[in-house]
Simulated scan of single mutants.
Amino acid sequence: MAKPNPKQPQRSVDIYCSRCRHQLYRYRKGGKGALVKCFVERISTDYTEEVGVCPSCQSQFGRQTLIRGAAAIKIIGGKVRMK
Rank of each mutant, 00 (worst) to 15 (best):
H22I: 05
H22N: 12
H22T: 11
H22F: 15
H22M: 15
H22S: 06
Q23I: 03
Q23C: 04
L24Q: 02
L24E: 01
Y25L: 04
Y25S: 02
Y25W: 14
Y25A: 00
Y25K: 01
R26K: 13
R26M: 09
Y27N: 03
Y27R: 03
Y27G: 02
Y27H: 06
R28N: 13
R28P: 05
R28H: 15
K29N: 02
K29V: 00
K29E: 04
K29P: 01
K29D: 04
G30A: 10
G30M: 03
G31N: 04
G31K: 05
K32C: 10
K32G: 09
G33I: 15
G33D: 15
G33S: 14
A34E: 15
A34L: 14
A34T: 13
V36G: 10
V36Y: 08
V36D: 07
K37I: 08
K37V: 01
K37W: 01
K37N: 04
K37F: 06
K37S: 06
F39Y: 12
F39T: 00
F39Q: 00
V40Q: 12
V40F: 09
V40P: 04
V40C: 10
V40Y: 07
V40L: 07
V40A: 03
E41L: 12
E41Y: 10
E41P: 05
E41V: 14
R42C: 03
I43N: 07
S44K: 09
S44Q: 14
T45I: 15
T45Q: 12
T45N: 11
D46E: 11
D46N: 14
D46G: 04
D46V: 08
D46P: 05
Y47K: 03
Y47H: 05
Y47G: 00
E49F: 03
E49M: 05
E50D: 14
V51P: 00
V51R: 10
V51I: 09
V51T: 08
V51Q: 08
V51N: 06
V51A: 15
V51W: 07
G52T: 06
G52Y: 04
G52C: 02
G52P: 04
V53H: 00
V53T: 03
V53A: 00
C54V: 05
C54G: 04
C54S: 08
C54D: 02
C54W: 01
P55C: 02
P55R: 02
P55G: 05
S56C: 08
S56A: 15
S56P: 01
S56V: 05
C57W: 11
C57V: 07
C57F: 08
Q58T: 10
S59R: 06
S59Q: 13
S59A: 14
S59W: 06
S59I: 09
S59D: 12
S59F: 07
